[in-house]
């Protein structure tokens, strides 16, 4: 049976991190399973935790009045869920819901925040890694925003005749 530290060290967010840093982070975490349909985070709830997704599918979503939830981003193995624990007011901004059975490591953000305040080396290392994930998410969001597929002609079809 793997320890939390093993799961943490193998997750893409922490891969290659110093063993003592991994051990510390693992000390703030515990394995958590979710069933399909379970919520990992709810909008506006206190954001005390974040999750390393080990196995399964989840979705970040939001909702409008009386409407079904709107999926924003699908997540799976090696993704992370939640960074509101890092930034005041420490409340979740979106719902995260399990689309299948999930295995996760739940990390206590309060514990890690407190440690990072006193250990800037760990804090910077962690922030660099989270920033890389954030950059990837922003890039993806911008790509989605571009709406590149809307009404694109079949490649090579040149509908310029109105000009000729």
């Amino acid at each position: 049976m793997k320890t939390v530290a093993q799961f943490v060290s193998e997750h893409s967010l922490f891969k290659g991190m110093k063993p003592d840093q991994v051990d510390f982070i693992a000390s703030c975490g515990q394995l958590r399973r979710f069933a399909e349909g379970d919520y990992l985070t709810r909008e506006n709830d206190p954001a005390d935790f974040f999750y390393l997704l080990l196995e399964g599918h989840a979705v970040i979503e939001t909702h409008q009045h009386n409407q079904p939830p709107v999926p924003l981003l699908s997540l799976t193995d090696n993704d992370i869920i939640g960074w509101s624990w890092l930034i005041p007011p420490y409340r979740y901004q979106f719902d995260a819901r399990a689309l299948s059975r999930l295995r996760t490591v739940r990390l206590d953000g309060r514990c890690i925040r407190a440690k990072c305040d006193t250990d800037p080396a760990l804090g910077f290392e962690l922030l660099k890694r989270l920033a890389a994930v954030l950059v990837q998410r922003i890039h993806g969001a911008r790509f989605q925003l571009l709406d590149v597929y809307s009404a694109d002609p079949a490649p090579l079809c040149r509908p310029g005749e109105s000009l000729r």
Binding site: V59, P69, P71, L99, Q136, H139, G140
Partner: peptide, 23 residues
């Protein structure tokens, strides 16, 4: 399959294709 937007019934990926390629 990856789509930019989907309703709640969609079981595939929501996001961008580069994300699928990265993982």
């Amino acid at each position: 399959l990856s789509v930019d937007q989907a309703g709640p019934d969609w079981r595939g990926h929501v996001g961008v294709i580069t994300q699928l390629l990265a993982s």
